[in-house]
């Protein structure tokens, strides 16, 4: 991730703090935290009385599983469909903004390394 070296002096305060994500381990920790949170939430289903309108809701961990599989299935669908739907960026050019740069008059480009 860090093929570009940043000079902390030039970064805003919050940016300097966030430099900790430059370290891949911290990112991994975040992911592990997510796993743990998921596990906890799944278990939580067994500790309260669910109020439901549709019977499937009452299935333990229904939302968790549904969320997970819905997401995976949809992504896989997207992955497959992408093969058919994707076209070159200039496909509609020049009738399209996709193929052109955003004009400078609308921008206020400023970089930290100017």
């Amino acid at each position: 991730m860090a093929q570009f070296k940043d000079d902390p002096e030039k970064l805003p305060w919050l940016g300097r703090k966030l430099m900790l994500f430059d370290d891949k381990k911290n990112v991994d920790r975040l992911v592990y935290g997510l796993y743990a949170l998921c596990a906890l939430l799944f278990l939580a289903d067994f500790f309260y009385k669910k109020k439901y309108y549709i019977s499937a809701e009452n299935f333990p961990g229904f939302y968790a599983l549904y969320g997970f599989f819905a997401c995976v299935v949809l992504v896989l669908c997207a992955k497959v469909l992408r093969r058919f739907l994707m076209r070159d960026e200039g496909f509609y050019a020049p009738q399209d903004t996709e193929s052109e740069d955003h004009p400078d008059h609308d921008l206020g480009k400023e970089s930290h390394y100017d």
């Binding site: 009385k49 599983l65 969320g67 997970f68 995976v72």
Partner: peptide
């Protein structure tokens, strides 16, 4: 309670899906 927990389950497990994918 139901609502908050189920919603969090839904969201975090999809996040999990994203992470795994």
């Amino acid at each position: 309670t139901t609502h908050v927990i189920t919603q969090l389950q839904l969201l975090l497990f999809s996040a999990l899906g994203f992470a795994l994918l």
